[in-house]
Design a protein around this nucleic acid. Structure first.
Lengths: 250, 250
DNA sequence: CGATCTTTTGACTCTGATCAACCGGGGTGG
DNA sequence: CCACCCCGGTTGATCAGAGTCAAAAGATCG
């Protein structure tokens, strides 16, 4: 029944994630592990961020999926980005910033407080250079995803957009160890995906069928498998975001 | 011939801009005025930011327009946002961040170095709280514009998008005193606007004609006039971004 | 006064939206 | 246990918004 990640301390997924972006010292790893292990369960549709409120309670999405979005008066919805397991939200590098969008959970989810991490990189950045770097990297990534989203929605065809989004999600889930090779969980309804891609549900459905018929993806009950990642990346013009200069050369 | 802003020190436009977001102390105003008055002239198509390069040279666009964009391999272009007079660019609150997009000038432009401001808010934020606040606000605004852009392009019709963008630009130009009431300079070609709105030039042209026919705007040689701003805001569902809590109440 | 760029117009196409109905599974309540 | 219902996915038919192609008409600029 419960399809959430098998029991693992909240710090685990975050540790896995941040390690990708910087070398973490034992002290830093210690800090992550000392972060409150208690995580809270919330149901579908829970508001994680409320537009207009001050962003002062950094949190970690331990499991489950969420999204940031905006509604138009007549019910049209645009999803800006997805918040995936291991992502932090409700924080902003700018002090006293207020939330520009609302965010809600799209599945059951577990959330944990991330204030400790926040304090560490904010007030004691020099003690925790790795954490600081890694958090800055995740902020850059978020911006990169937003730009990708804009290109998808603004200039790509339905076919390209869909492929591109799938690749991006695969990339992100891989980074936190939630991809099983080319197979990723896909708990989103087609309606949700459509609202992210700026398409109608019906058209998205047909586009997915096309991708399947072209043997680029395979999808069954809550999962998507990338059959030919290279071709897919080719049609979508997908490039994993580059957010830092290579530090090691030669 | 030369339609740039009448001679005014570079610090002027920035001062006008930042004063909107925070009370500036005499010391802070002094700092802005002491910023190198020398501004450099550059032609159309000059690269202001190069994707992949480290963002370490904060600059001020004193006059002229620019944009950030990305190209697809087959020539399609998505413009992410516009850089207007009084905007800063080439900086990032995150240290050692690398540019996620390229930016080029769309008109002749004047640019000035903004390192002084940068140093002030970065290393001596407590001495310059107003400047610091104001700069953070502009960063938030940039993000808000990006989100607006996504809604336009993802969920609005051509008619709505066009109206929305015009209103946003009017707002931004007003903030730096470049709007003459409801009339704003519009140095962009329709091709450029189309690339921002995710439309074809032909369709944008027809959409503009519709807006004119509906007496919502008027446009002539390099200028646009908003004839019925309220109606326009209504069709576009336009709301000026709110990026800070009201500080004064009662 | 050409040459080039931008805007405009016309005709046609097509991608993607809309409307409506149906299917299938899982939960629920009688 | 079964009927019902609701939700999400699928299909079909039709429509319309927006793209494409092509060319003309204005602007601008050496």
């Amino acid at each position: 029944m419960d399809q959430r990640t098998p029991v693992a301390p909240p710090s685990d997924i975050l540790l896995r994630r941040l390690s990708h972006y910087a070398e973490l010292s034992p002290a830093e790893i210690g800090l992550l592990e000392a972060m409150p292990l208690a995580s809270q369960d919330v149901g579908v549709g829970t508001e994680l961020i409320v537009e207009g409120r001050i962003l002062d309670t950094p949190r970690l999405l331990v499991s489950g999926w969420a999204c940031r979005f905006r509604m138009l008066p007549d019910g049209r919805r645009q999803i800006f980005d997805f918040i995936l397991p291991g992502d932090m939200y409700g924080l902003c590098l700018r002090p006293q910033a207020i939330a520009l969008t609302t965010a809600i959970t799209l599945t059951q989810a577990q959330i944990a407080d991330a204030s400790a991490l926040w304090v560490a990189i904010k007030d004691r950045a020099d003690e925790f250079p790795g954490l600081s770097d890694a958090c800055h990297s995740t902020a850059s990534l978020e911006e990169a995803y937003l730009l990708n989203q804009l290109v998808r929605v603004g200039r790509q065809t339905a076919y390209e957009r869909t492929a591109h989004l799938i690749l991006e999600i695969h990339d992100r889930l891989s980074a936190v160890g939630l991809a099983d090779g080319a197979t990723i969980p896909m708990p989103l309804t087609q309606e949700t995906i459509a609202d992210a891609l700026g398409l109608s549900v019906v058209h998205l459905n047909r586009t997915l069928q096309l991708l399947r018929r072209d043997h680029l993806i395979e999808s069954r009950a809550g999962f998507v498998k990338l059959l030919q990642p290279e071709q897919l990346a080719d049609v979508a013009d997908f490039h994993p975001p580059v957010i830092s200069q290579k530090r090691k050369s030669g």
